[in-house]
């Protein structure tokens, strides 16, 4: 953005030199306002400013840049007979519009960005910002609200809001606990306090058969889940 603005500012000076100034001292009309290469840079820069300022949802800057772009697009291509250099010529009205557009873009963008605050996230923290990506499909088994809370927990971590992140994680955990209850086909009410839920899960675990290795493995996983939840509850 800064580079683009800097370049626009320098072109602004060029136009003044080759355009207005040339006309004022009565240089022949064969001369052009700016060379072709600079013209395309100008068009590209204005288009970039429009895209960028629209992406940033600025209100005034894109309109100012569009005025300039429209004026610039009305330029007439010409080439210098002696040197063969190609360029474009602006009519006096469009040159005025273009010049004020270039001057106003700088002012508009400064004014509009002054009311903004921008944040930058370091690459190491980015996975937390896109927290669901860290969970892949494992969350599909649990209620949608838990996905939402985990997503927000990650965003809170990315922005350094530890307490808010833990708050979201606890809410996600509550939804996940409801999911466990549903998963085990338990009749327990997931709105119960955690202690009661834990008793229900404990009873369910105890009731599971263990007559073959598969059954034993499942029972062990339920037992581990019970233990994990107990630790979370204590925390």
């Amino acid at each position: 953005l800064a580079a683009s603005l800097g370049w626009i500012a320098s072109v602004h000076e060029d136009i003044k030199l080759f355009g207005i100034f040339a006309k004022e001292i009565g240089v022949s009309d064969d001369r052009f306002s700016i060379i072709e290469e600079e013209y395309y840079k100008l068009i590209g820069s204005l288009e970039y400013m429009i895209t960028l300022s629209e992406t940033l949802r600025l209100n005034v800057t894109p309109e100012v840049a569009k005025d300039g772009l429209n004026a610039a697009k009305r330029a007439i291509f010409a080439s210098d007979r002696e040197s063969g250099i190609r360029g474009v010529r602006f009519n006096i009205l469009d040159l005025g519009i273009l010049r004020s557009s270039l001057r106003d873009i700088v002012m508009a963008i400064e004014k509009e960005l002054r009311g903004r605050r921008s944040y930058s996230l370091e690459p190491a923290i980015l996975p937390y910002y896109d927290a669901l990506g860290m969970f892949s499909e494992t969350l599909d088994k649990f209620p949608a609200s838990s996905r939402e809370d985990i997503e927000h927990a990650g965003k809170c971590i990315a922005f350094g809001e530890g307490t808010a992140a833990v708050f979201h994680l606890m809410r996600a955990m509550e939804a996940i606990v409801s999911g466990i209850v549903a998963l085990g086909g338990l009749s327990a009410n997931p709105d119960k306090e955690w202690g009661k839920l834990l008793s229900d899960i404990g009873r369910h675990t105890e009731s599971l058969p263990q007559s073959n290795p598969q059954e034993k493995a499942l029972r062990n996983r339920w037992s581990a889940c019970h233990k994990n939840l107990y630790h979370v509850k204590q925390a």
């Binding site: 860290m134 927990a153 994680l169 466990i180």
Partner: peptide, 24 residues
Amino acid sequence: TYTTEEAKQVFDSTRAFVRELATL
């Protein structure tokens, strides 16, 4: 009050827990 580092630990534990649960 939790620091970001503590919140990260809770987050990572939750993730490990969920991954384990998904196998139930």
